[in-house]
């Protein structure tokens, strides 16, 4: 019966392993420059209060697991049939009102405690008042990319959200208004907040107040079709100065550079304009991402590839190369035309 004892020990130690693995995982498993988007590495009030709540719930459920799992393991070990047993049956016990009443009342008390704690955090996050200084951003989910509109600043961009850092002294939370252009999506950057869905005809709201500058990654968390997996999210939390500079730059129209006029001509005369906007040109499409400041973004295709000359070339030639099933068609341009087009796009700072 040794294996049962060992199994019991392993099972009892599970919650401990759980704690250890979660705290160590972002360090131990990180392969690249970014750390994991762990829900246990919060950088914003909603994510932090969720983390605090989750430790509390883990402690209670862990306690229940150790108690009940321990009793079960002990019972299995203690009451195993032995070779020395005779053929007789053990004493038959049909129930006990007192014992059954006790193990009904105790769970009820635990539920009351858990519910009240949970309800407090629900109201604290969901019904938080919006301060005057809050930044408004409208997020529109598309198959398979993100549109970010800053209605009060007159900015439209895609896939990489820029928000200012917020602190206790100078709170500057960002309130996100969530819409969808097609199917259901979900906005999830684990270190900043829990997820909220983007549902057509059903506007939602959420907020974040990141306390540390840097890049936070996430992705669409509601299955939205073929390329759901490559609908990635990047949130840049800037210092107030960086954010102001970024805003100033984003409000400019598209760069006009006569040395790439050929590329611009291709962009304006081919199908590109049906879907894309470049402010200051004839291109005013809204089906695809706004490209006015394409070069201010680190990635293309909703994070599926880095924003490099080669990748842009490959993307325009055949979007399926990075993202099979993306809604942008292959543009059927010659290599030369694509070179000229990419040369133009890379001036759009």
């Amino acid at each position: 019966m040794r294996e049962h004892g060992a199994r019991a020990i392993r099972l009892v130690s599970l919650p401990l392993l759980c704690f250890a693995a979660v705290s160590a995982a972002p360090i131990a498993w990180a392969d690249g420059p970014q750390s994991s988007p762990s829900i246990f590495a919060p950088a914003s009030t909603p994510a932090s209060s969720i983390q605090d709540l989750s430790w509390f719930v883990l402690a209670i459920t862990g306690g229940i697991f150790v108690t009940v799992g321990g009793l079960l393991a002990w019972a299995i070990f203690r009451y195993r049939a032995r070779k020395t047993d005779d053929d007789s049956e053990p004493a038959q016990i049909y129930g006990s009102t007192q014992v059954e009443l006790a193990w009904t009342v105790i769970p009820i008390l635990i539920v009351v405690v858990l519910f009240l704690t949970t309800a407090r955090i629900i109201f604290a996050i969901q019904d938080a008042p919006k301060p005057q200084v809050a930044l408004d951003v409208t997020v529109v989910g598309h198959q398979f990319w993100w549109e970010f509109r800053y209605p009060k600043l007159g900015i439209v961009t895609a896939n990489e959200l820029h928000v200012p850092v917020s602190s206790a002294l100078e709170p500057r939370p960002t309130f996100l208004h969530l819409l969808s252009a097609d199917v259901d999506h979900s906005f999830w950057v684990p270190q900043l907040a829990g997820k909220t869905d983007l549902i057509p005809n059903h506007p939602n709201d959420m907020w974040i107040d990141p306390r540390h500058t840097g890049l936070y990654v996430g992705q669409c968390a509601q299955f939205c079709g073929v390329e759901h997996a490559k609908m990635l999210l990047r949130v840049y939390v800037d210092t107030p100065e960086e954010f102001d500079t970024w805003v100033k730059q984003q409000r400019q129209p598209g760069m006009q550079d006569s040395s790439v006029a050929a590329g611009r001509h291709i962009f304006e005369t081919e199908a590109c304009t049906n879907c894309h906007t470049i402010a200051g040109t004839a291109a005013t499409g809204t089906f695809g991402p706004n490209l006015t400041h394409l070069e201010s973004r680190a990635t293309i295709a909703a994070g599926a590839a880095l924003n490099t000359t080669e990748n842009l070339h490959a993307w325009i030639q055949d979007p399926d190369h990075f993202k099979p099933g993306a809604l942008m068609p292959a543009m059927q341009l010659s290599g030369e035309q694509i070179d000229e087009l990419v040369a133009y796009l890379t001036t759009l700072h």
Binding site: W29, G32, S36, W188, P190, H228, A229
Partner: peptide, 28 residues
Amino acid sequence: FDTMHFVGFLGMPRSIYTYEPDRGWNHL
């Protein structure tokens, strides 16, 4: 299934056919 709990804590959503190599989900 024990391991899946942890990769969920690390922010991996369901229904994705592939994932980025820099998210710390590879070994799990």
